[in-house]
Design a protein around this nucleic acid. Structure first.
Lengths: 194, 194
DNA sequence: AACGCAATGTAGCATTCGCTACAATAGCCT
DNA sequence: AGGCTATTGTAGCGAATGCTACATTGCGTT
Protein backbone atom coordinates (compact mmCIF):
# COMPACT_ATOMS: atom_id res chain seq x y z
CA UNK A 1 0.00 0.00 0.00
CA UNK A 2 1.03 3.58 0.49
CA UNK A 3 1.08 4.88 -3.03
CA UNK A 4 3.66 7.38 -4.10
CA UNK A 5 2.75 10.88 -3.00
CA UNK A 6 1.27 11.93 -6.35
CA UNK A 7 0.49 15.17 -4.61
CA UNK A 8 3.26 17.65 -5.35
CA UNK A 9 2.39 19.74 -2.31
CA UNK A 10 5.08 18.90 0.25
CA UNK A 11 2.80 18.51 3.20
CA UNK A 12 5.34 16.67 5.26
CA UNK A 13 8.45 15.56 3.46
CA UNK A 14 9.73 13.57 6.43
CA UNK A 15 13.33 12.80 5.49
CA UNK A 16 12.87 13.78 1.85
CA UNK A 17 16.22 13.09 0.29
CA UNK A 18 14.90 11.79 -3.00
CA UNK A 19 11.96 12.55 -5.17
CA UNK A 20 10.99 12.14 -8.77
CA UNK A 21 12.64 15.45 -9.53
CA UNK A 22 15.96 14.70 -7.88
CA UNK A 23 15.99 11.17 -9.26
CA UNK A 24 15.32 11.93 -12.91
CA UNK A 25 18.60 13.72 -13.71
CA UNK A 26 20.62 10.85 -12.29
CA UNK A 27 18.51 8.28 -14.11
CA UNK A 28 18.82 10.24 -17.34
CA UNK A 29 22.57 10.41 -17.11
CA UNK A 30 22.64 6.67 -16.59
CA UNK A 31 20.55 5.84 -19.65
CA UNK A 32 22.54 8.32 -21.70
CA UNK A 33 25.56 6.24 -20.90
CA UNK A 34 24.13 2.74 -20.88
CA UNK A 35 21.00 2.84 -23.00
CA UNK A 36 17.34 2.44 -22.43
CA UNK A 37 16.75 -1.07 -23.66
CA UNK A 38 18.94 -2.92 -21.23
CA UNK A 39 18.09 -0.67 -18.34
CA UNK A 40 16.87 -2.60 -15.34
CA UNK A 41 15.77 -1.34 -11.98
CA UNK A 42 18.69 -2.27 -9.80
CA UNK A 43 21.43 -0.71 -11.94
CA UNK A 44 19.26 2.36 -12.43
CA UNK A 45 18.73 2.61 -8.70
CA UNK A 46 22.40 2.23 -8.00
CA UNK A 47 23.21 5.02 -10.43
CA UNK A 48 20.71 7.21 -8.65
CA UNK A 49 21.92 6.27 -5.19
CA UNK A 50 18.81 4.43 -4.13
CA UNK A 51 17.24 1.02 -4.28
CA UNK A 52 14.91 -0.56 -6.79
CA UNK A 53 12.40 -0.51 -3.99
CA UNK A 54 12.37 3.29 -4.00
CA UNK A 55 12.18 3.57 -7.76
CA UNK A 56 9.01 1.53 -7.75
CA UNK A 57 7.79 3.57 -4.81
CA UNK A 58 8.27 6.87 -6.61
CA UNK A 59 7.22 5.87 -10.12
CA UNK A 60 4.72 3.08 -9.53
CA UNK A 61 6.26 0.61 -11.92
CA UNK A 62 9.05 0.37 -14.43
CA UNK A 63 6.93 1.27 -17.43
CA UNK A 64 5.87 4.52 -15.84
CA UNK A 65 9.44 5.23 -14.84
CA UNK A 66 10.53 4.90 -18.46
CA UNK A 67 7.68 7.11 -19.61
CA UNK A 68 8.54 9.82 -17.11
CA UNK A 69 12.21 9.47 -17.92
CA UNK A 70 11.61 9.85 -21.64
CA UNK A 71 9.57 12.95 -21.03
CA UNK A 72 12.34 14.35 -18.87
CA UNK A 73 14.97 13.54 -21.48
CA UNK A 74 12.90 15.27 -24.13
CA UNK A 75 12.90 18.28 -21.84
CA UNK A 76 16.63 18.42 -21.31
CA UNK A 77 17.14 17.86 -25.02
CA UNK A 78 15.06 20.93 -25.69
CA UNK A 79 17.09 22.87 -23.16
CA UNK A 80 20.30 21.67 -24.77
CA UNK A 81 19.07 22.94 -28.11
CA UNK A 82 18.28 26.33 -26.65
CA UNK A 83 21.77 26.57 -25.25
CA UNK A 84 23.57 24.98 -28.17
CA UNK A 85 23.77 27.84 -30.61
CA UNK A 86 22.81 31.39 -29.88
CA UNK A 87 20.22 33.24 -31.85
CA UNK A 88 22.61 33.93 -34.68
CA UNK A 89 21.12 32.88 -37.94
CA UNK A 90 23.10 31.28 -40.69
CA UNK A 91 23.73 33.13 -43.91
CA UNK A 92 22.72 30.28 -46.18
CA UNK A 93 20.88 26.99 -45.92
CA UNK A 94 24.14 25.30 -46.66
CA UNK A 95 25.83 26.96 -43.73
CA UNK A 96 22.85 26.24 -41.54
CA UNK A 97 23.04 22.52 -42.27
CA UNK A 98 26.79 22.46 -41.87
CA UNK A 99 26.57 24.09 -38.45
CA UNK A 100 24.03 21.65 -37.17
CA UNK A 101 25.93 18.66 -38.45
CA UNK A 102 29.04 19.99 -36.74
CA UNK A 103 27.05 20.34 -33.54
CA UNK A 104 26.00 16.72 -33.92
CA UNK A 105 29.64 15.67 -33.83
CA UNK A 106 29.99 17.08 -30.32
CA UNK A 107 30.64 14.34 -27.74
CA UNK A 108 27.71 15.51 -25.66
CA UNK A 109 25.42 15.24 -28.65
CA UNK A 110 26.85 11.86 -29.54
CA UNK A 111 25.44 10.41 -26.34
CA UNK A 112 22.10 11.88 -27.23
CA UNK A 113 22.26 10.46 -30.72
CA UNK A 114 22.98 6.94 -29.60
CA UNK A 115 20.05 7.15 -27.23
CA UNK A 116 17.96 8.79 -29.91
CA UNK A 117 18.03 5.73 -32.16
CA UNK A 118 16.74 3.63 -29.32
CA UNK A 119 13.90 6.08 -28.93
CA UNK A 120 13.15 5.93 -32.63
CA UNK A 121 13.13 2.15 -32.51
CA UNK A 122 10.80 2.17 -29.53
CA UNK A 123 8.57 4.66 -31.25
CA UNK A 124 8.40 2.55 -34.38
CA UNK A 125 7.49 -0.49 -32.33
CA UNK A 126 4.88 1.38 -30.34
CA UNK A 127 6.41 1.09 -26.88
CA UNK A 128 4.54 3.28 -24.40
CA UNK A 129 6.01 6.75 -24.02
CA UNK A 130 8.52 6.51 -26.83
CA UNK A 131 6.38 7.95 -29.56
CA UNK A 132 5.40 10.94 -27.47
CA UNK A 133 8.97 11.72 -26.46
CA UNK A 134 10.28 11.32 -29.99
CA UNK A 135 7.57 13.48 -31.46
CA UNK A 136 8.17 16.17 -28.90
CA UNK A 137 11.90 16.18 -29.50
CA UNK A 138 11.44 16.42 -33.23
CA UNK A 139 8.89 19.19 -32.94
CA UNK A 140 11.26 21.14 -30.74
CA UNK A 141 14.15 20.60 -33.07
CA UNK A 142 12.09 21.68 -36.04
CA UNK A 143 11.07 24.88 -34.31
CA UNK A 144 14.67 25.57 -33.34
CA UNK A 145 15.81 24.85 -36.86
CA UNK A 146 13.37 27.43 -38.18
CA UNK A 147 14.95 30.08 -36.02
CA UNK A 148 18.34 29.15 -37.44
CA UNK A 149 17.32 29.56 -41.06
CA UNK A 150 18.84 32.39 -43.05
CA UNK A 151 17.06 35.68 -42.60
CA UNK A 152 16.53 36.10 -46.31
CA UNK A 153 15.25 32.58 -46.88
CA UNK A 154 12.26 32.60 -49.21
CA UNK A 155 10.34 30.05 -47.16
CA UNK A 156 11.95 29.36 -43.77
CA UNK A 157 9.23 26.98 -42.58
CA UNK A 158 9.37 24.76 -45.62
CA UNK A 159 13.13 25.07 -45.81
CA UNK A 160 13.48 23.93 -42.23
CA UNK A 161 11.40 20.84 -42.97
CA UNK A 162 13.54 20.10 -45.97
CA UNK A 163 16.78 20.54 -44.07
CA UNK A 164 15.36 18.46 -41.25
CA UNK A 165 14.69 15.56 -43.57
CA UNK A 166 18.18 15.75 -45.01
CA UNK A 167 19.66 16.14 -41.57
CA UNK A 168 17.99 13.09 -40.11
CA UNK A 169 18.86 11.03 -43.14
CA UNK A 170 22.46 12.10 -42.76
CA UNK A 171 22.51 11.20 -39.09
CA UNK A 172 21.03 7.78 -39.75
CA UNK A 173 23.50 6.99 -42.46
CA UNK A 174 26.22 8.06 -40.10
CA UNK A 175 24.91 5.71 -37.43
CA UNK A 176 25.27 2.71 -39.73
CA UNK A 177 28.67 3.53 -41.11
CA UNK A 178 27.53 5.30 -44.23
CA UNK A 179 28.52 8.82 -43.32
CA UNK A 180 30.41 8.98 -46.57
CA UNK A 181 27.29 8.20 -48.56
CA UNK A 182 25.41 11.03 -46.91
CA UNK A 183 28.29 13.44 -47.40
CA UNK A 184 28.42 12.71 -51.12
CA UNK A 185 24.65 12.98 -51.29
CA UNK A 186 24.67 16.41 -49.69
CA UNK A 187 27.50 17.48 -51.92
CA UNK A 188 25.45 16.53 -54.96
CA UNK A 189 22.51 18.49 -53.66
CA UNK A 190 24.57 21.61 -53.50
CA UNK A 191 23.94 21.85 -49.79
CA UNK A 192 27.43 21.00 -48.75
CA UNK A 193 30.93 21.76 -49.84
CA UNK A 194 32.84 19.41 -47.58
CA UNK B 1 31.26 -30.93 -25.22
CA UNK B 2 30.49 -31.82 -28.82
CA UNK B 3 30.66 -28.55 -30.59
CA UNK B 4 28.22 -27.71 -33.31
CA UNK B 5 29.21 -29.33 -36.61
CA UNK B 6 30.88 -26.27 -38.08
CA UNK B 7 31.67 -28.53 -40.99
CA UNK B 8 29.09 -28.05 -43.71
CA UNK B 9 29.82 -31.46 -45.21
CA UNK B 10 26.96 -33.71 -44.09
CA UNK B 11 29.05 -36.60 -42.98
CA UNK B 12 26.29 -38.21 -41.00
CA UNK B 13 23.16 -36.16 -40.41
CA UNK B 14 21.66 -38.72 -38.08
CA UNK B 15 18.13 -37.45 -37.62
CA UNK B 16 18.85 -34.10 -39.17
CA UNK B 17 15.63 -32.21 -38.79
CA UNK B 18 17.14 -28.89 -37.94
CA UNK B 19 20.23 -27.00 -38.86
CA UNK B 20 21.40 -23.44 -38.97
CA UNK B 21 19.92 -23.11 -42.43
CA UNK B 22 16.49 -24.47 -41.60
CA UNK B 23 16.37 -22.57 -38.32
CA UNK B 24 17.26 -19.12 -39.58
CA UNK B 25 14.13 -18.45 -41.64
CA UNK B 26 11.91 -19.32 -38.70
CA UNK B 27 13.97 -17.24 -36.32
CA UNK B 28 13.92 -14.34 -38.74
CA UNK B 29 10.17 -14.41 -39.06
CA UNK B 30 9.94 -14.35 -35.29
CA UNK B 31 12.13 -11.30 -34.83
CA UNK B 32 10.35 -9.57 -37.68
CA UNK B 33 7.20 -9.92 -35.66
CA UNK B 34 8.48 -9.46 -32.13
CA UNK B 35 11.69 -7.53 -32.40
CA UNK B 36 15.33 -8.20 -31.71
CA UNK B 37 15.81 -6.48 -28.39
CA UNK B 38 13.40 -8.48 -26.33
CA UNK B 39 14.21 -11.72 -28.10
CA UNK B 40 15.22 -14.45 -25.67
CA UNK B 41 16.21 -17.99 -26.40
CA UNK B 42 13.15 -19.87 -25.25
CA UNK B 43 10.57 -17.90 -27.27
CA UNK B 44 12.88 -17.98 -30.26
CA UNK B 45 13.25 -21.72 -29.93
CA UNK B 46 9.53 -22.21 -29.60
CA UNK B 47 8.95 -20.18 -32.76
CA UNK B 48 11.44 -22.38 -34.55
CA UNK B 49 10.01 -25.58 -33.14
CA UNK B 50 12.97 -26.50 -31.02
CA UNK B 51 14.43 -25.89 -27.61
CA UNK B 52 16.82 -23.29 -26.31
CA UNK B 53 19.17 -26.18 -25.82
CA UNK B 54 19.37 -26.76 -29.57
CA UNK B 55 19.78 -23.09 -30.41
CA UNK B 56 22.84 -22.95 -28.23
CA UNK B 57 24.01 -26.20 -29.76
CA UNK B 58 23.76 -24.90 -33.30
CA UNK B 59 24.93 -21.33 -32.77
CA UNK B 60 27.28 -21.60 -29.82
CA UNK B 61 25.77 -18.80 -27.80
CA UNK B 62 23.12 -16.16 -28.08
CA UNK B 63 25.41 -13.44 -29.31
CA UNK B 64 26.53 -15.54 -32.23
CA UNK B 65 22.95 -16.48 -32.95
CA UNK B 66 22.02 -12.82 -33.22
CA UNK B 67 25.01 -12.13 -35.43
CA UNK B 68 24.15 -14.95 -37.78
CA UNK B 69 20.52 -13.94 -37.73
CA UNK B 70 21.32 -10.35 -38.62
CA UNK B 71 23.46 -11.51 -41.48
CA UNK B 72 20.66 -13.73 -42.70
CA UNK B 73 18.13 -10.91 -42.42
CA UNK B 74 20.41 -8.64 -44.41
CA UNK B 75 20.43 -11.36 -47.04
CA UNK B 76 16.68 -11.71 -47.31
CA UNK B 77 16.35 -7.95 -47.32
CA UNK B 78 18.61 -7.84 -50.34
CA UNK B 79 16.56 -10.53 -51.99
CA UNK B 80 13.37 -8.62 -51.23
CA UNK B 81 14.86 -5.57 -52.90
CA UNK B 82 15.72 -7.54 -56.00
CA UNK B 83 12.19 -8.79 -56.23
CA UNK B 84 10.50 -5.58 -55.18
CA UNK B 85 10.54 -3.57 -58.36
CA UNK B 86 11.58 -4.86 -61.74
CA UNK B 87 14.31 -3.31 -63.73
CA UNK B 88 12.12 -0.47 -64.89
CA UNK B 89 13.73 2.83 -64.25
CA UNK B 90 11.83 5.85 -63.13
CA UNK B 91 11.45 8.78 -65.48
CA UNK B 92 12.44 11.43 -62.94
CA UNK B 93 14.12 11.57 -59.57
CA UNK B 94 10.83 12.69 -58.18
CA UNK B 95 9.06 9.62 -59.48
CA UNK B 96 11.90 7.43 -58.28
CA UNK B 97 11.57 8.72 -54.74
CA UNK B 98 7.80 8.48 -54.82
CA UNK B 99 7.90 4.86 -55.91
CA UNK B 100 10.28 3.83 -53.19
CA UNK B 101 8.31 5.62 -50.53
CA UNK B 102 5.18 3.88 -51.76
CA UNK B 103 7.01 0.57 -51.53
CA UNK B 104 7.89 1.43 -47.96
CA UNK B 105 4.23 1.65 -47.08
CA UNK B 106 3.77 -2.01 -48.00
CA UNK B 107 2.87 -4.12 -44.94
CA UNK B 108 5.74 -6.47 -45.65
CA UNK B 109 8.17 -3.57 -45.69
CA UNK B 110 6.61 -2.14 -42.55
CA UNK B 111 7.79 -5.17 -40.58
CA UNK B 112 11.22 -4.65 -41.97
CA UNK B 113 11.18 -0.98 -41.10
CA UNK B 114 10.26 -1.55 -37.48
CA UNK B 115 13.07 -4.04 -37.19
CA UNK B 116 15.35 -1.73 -39.11
CA UNK B 117 15.28 0.95 -36.42
CA UNK B 118 16.32 -1.60 -33.86
CA UNK B 119 19.25 -2.48 -36.07
CA UNK B 120 20.18 1.17 -36.43
CA UNK B 121 20.03 1.60 -32.67
CA UNK B 122 22.21 -1.46 -32.14
CA UNK B 123 24.63 -0.22 -34.74
CA UNK B 124 24.86 3.18 -33.11
CA UNK B 125 25.54 1.55 -29.76
CA UNK B 126 28.11 -0.80 -31.20
CA UNK B 127 26.41 -4.11 -30.47
CA UNK B 128 28.22 -6.96 -32.19
CA UNK B 129 26.90 -7.77 -35.64
CA UNK B 130 24.54 -4.85 -35.92
CA UNK B 131 26.86 -2.47 -37.65
CA UNK B 132 27.87 -5.01 -40.25
CA UNK B 133 24.28 -5.97 -41.04
CA UNK B 134 23.14 -2.37 -41.23
CA UNK B 135 26.03 -1.35 -43.42
CA UNK B 136 25.41 -4.26 -45.75
CA UNK B 137 21.72 -3.49 -46.03
CA UNK B 138 22.39 0.14 -46.80
CA UNK B 139 25.03 -0.67 -49.36
CA UNK B 140 22.66 -3.02 -51.08
CA UNK B 141 19.86 -0.50 -51.04
CA UNK B 142 22.12 2.18 -52.43
CA UNK B 143 23.20 -0.04 -55.29
CA UNK B 144 19.61 -0.93 -56.02
CA UNK B 145 18.61 2.70 -55.88
CA UNK B 146 21.23 3.53 -58.48
CA UNK B 147 19.65 1.07 -60.87
CA UNK B 148 16.33 2.78 -60.35
CA UNK B 149 17.53 6.23 -61.21
CA UNK B 150 16.27 7.86 -64.37
CA UNK B 151 18.20 6.83 -67.47
CA UNK B 152 18.91 10.41 -68.39
CA UNK B 153 20.04 11.45 -64.93
CA UNK B 154 23.13 13.64 -65.10
CA UNK B 155 24.83 11.86 -62.20
CA UNK B 156 23.04 8.69 -61.10
CA UNK B 157 25.56 7.73 -58.45
CA UNK B 158 25.49 11.07 -56.69
CA UNK B 159 21.75 11.38 -57.24
CA UNK B 160 21.18 8.03 -55.60
CA UNK B 161 23.13 9.12 -52.55
CA UNK B 162 21.14 12.29 -52.34
CA UNK B 163 17.82 10.49 -52.69
CA UNK B 164 18.98 7.94 -50.16
CA UNK B 165 19.65 10.64 -47.60
CA UNK B 166 16.26 12.19 -48.18
CA UNK B 167 14.62 8.79 -48.15
CA UNK B 168 16.08 7.73 -44.82
CA UNK B 169 15.25 11.06 -43.28
CA UNK B 170 11.70 10.69 -44.47
CA UNK B 171 11.42 7.19 -43.05
CA UNK B 172 12.78 8.29 -39.69
CA UNK B 173 10.43 11.20 -39.42
CA UNK B 174 7.62 8.82 -40.28
CA UNK B 175 8.69 6.47 -37.51
CA UNK B 176 8.32 9.20 -34.92
CA UNK B 177 5.01 10.60 -36.08
CA UNK B 178 6.42 13.37 -38.23
CA UNK B 179 5.52 11.99 -41.62
CA UNK B 180 3.81 15.28 -42.34
CA UNK B 181 7.01 17.22 -41.70
CA UNK B 182 8.92 15.07 -44.16
CA UNK B 183 6.18 15.35 -46.78
CA UNK B 184 6.23 19.12 -46.58
CA UNK B 185 10.00 19.08 -46.67
CA UNK B 186 10.06 17.01 -49.83
CA UNK B 187 7.42 19.20 -51.35
CA UNK B 188 9.57 22.24 -50.74
CA UNK B 189 12.54 20.51 -52.32
CA UNK B 190 10.61 20.02 -55.51
CA UNK B 191 11.05 16.25 -55.19
CA UNK B 192 7.45 15.51 -54.37
CA UNK B 193 4.06 16.63 -55.50
CA UNK B 194 1.93 14.84 -52.94
C1' DA C 1 1.98 12.23 24.41
C1' DA C 2 -0.37 9.79 20.96
C1' DC C 3 -1.41 9.16 16.38
C1' DG C 4 -0.94 9.20 11.27
C1' DC C 5 1.51 8.94 7.40
C1' DA C 6 5.35 9.70 4.12
C1' DA C 7 9.70 7.59 3.30
C1' DT C 8 12.88 3.99 3.51
C1' DG C 9 15.40 -0.55 4.57
C1' DT C 10 15.55 -5.67 4.51
C1' DA C 11 13.99 -10.00 2.60
C1' DG C 12 12.11 -12.37 -0.31
C1' DC C 13 9.07 -14.39 -4.14
C1' DA C 14 8.04 -16.06 -8.69
C1' DT C 15 9.67 -15.85 -13.15
C1' DT C 16 12.87 -15.62 -16.77
C1' DC C 17 17.49 -15.43 -18.33
C1' DG C 18 21.63 -17.79 -20.83
C1' DC C 19 23.84 -21.82 -20.44
C1' DT C 20 25.51 -26.61 -18.84
C1' DA C 21 25.64 -31.53 -17.21
C1' DC C 22 24.22 -35.84 -18.22
C1' DA C 23 22.14 -39.20 -20.63
C1' DA C 24 19.79 -41.25 -24.45
C1' DT C 25 19.12 -42.23 -29.46
C1' DA C 26 20.53 -43.35 -33.95
C1' DG C 27 22.89 -43.50 -37.99
C1' DC C 28 27.81 -44.17 -40.26
C1' DC C 29 32.38 -46.53 -40.77
C1' DT C 30 35.48 -50.33 -39.97
C1' DA D 1 28.98 -56.36 -34.45
C1' DG D 2 31.10 -52.65 -32.21
C1' DG D 3 32.34 -48.19 -31.74
C1' DC D 4 32.30 -43.31 -32.90
C1' DT D 5 29.91 -39.18 -33.38
C1' DA D 6 26.24 -36.12 -34.44
C1' DT D 7 22.08 -34.87 -32.57
C1' DT D 8 18.51 -34.31 -29.22
C1' DG D 9 15.82 -34.55 -24.56
C1' DT D 10 15.46 -33.66 -19.56
C1' DA D 11 16.89 -31.16 -15.57
C1' DG D 12 18.70 -27.94 -13.54
C1' DC D 13 21.95 -24.09 -11.98
C1' DG D 14 23.12 -19.45 -10.70
C1' DA D 15 22.05 -14.92 -11.77
C1' DA D 16 18.96 -11.21 -12.77
C1' DT D 17 14.36 -9.66 -13.46
C1' DG D 18 10.11 -6.70 -11.70
C1' DC D 19 7.71 -6.33 -7.77
C1' DT D 20 5.75 -7.13 -2.87
C1' DA D 21 5.34 -7.92 2.26
C1' DC D 22 6.67 -6.34 6.36
C1' DA D 23 8.93 -3.62 9.55
C1' DT D 24 11.01 0.72 10.91
C1' DT D 25 12.01 5.58 11.25
C1' DG D 26 10.83 10.17 11.97
C1' DC D 27 8.31 14.31 11.28
C1' DG D 28 3.81 16.96 11.66
C1' DT D 29 -0.58 17.28 13.65
C1' DT D 30 -3.78 17.01 17.29
Amino acid sequence: MSDPPSDPSPRSPAKAGLSRETLLPLLASHVLKHGLGGASLRPLAKAAGTSDRMLIYHFGNKEQLIIDLLEYIAGIYAAALEAALGSERAATRQECLARILAEGRTPAMQSFLVLWWEIVAGSARGLPGYREAAEQMMTKQLAWLETQMPADDPDPAAGARYLMTLLEGTLMLGAVGHARTAREGLLASGLSDA
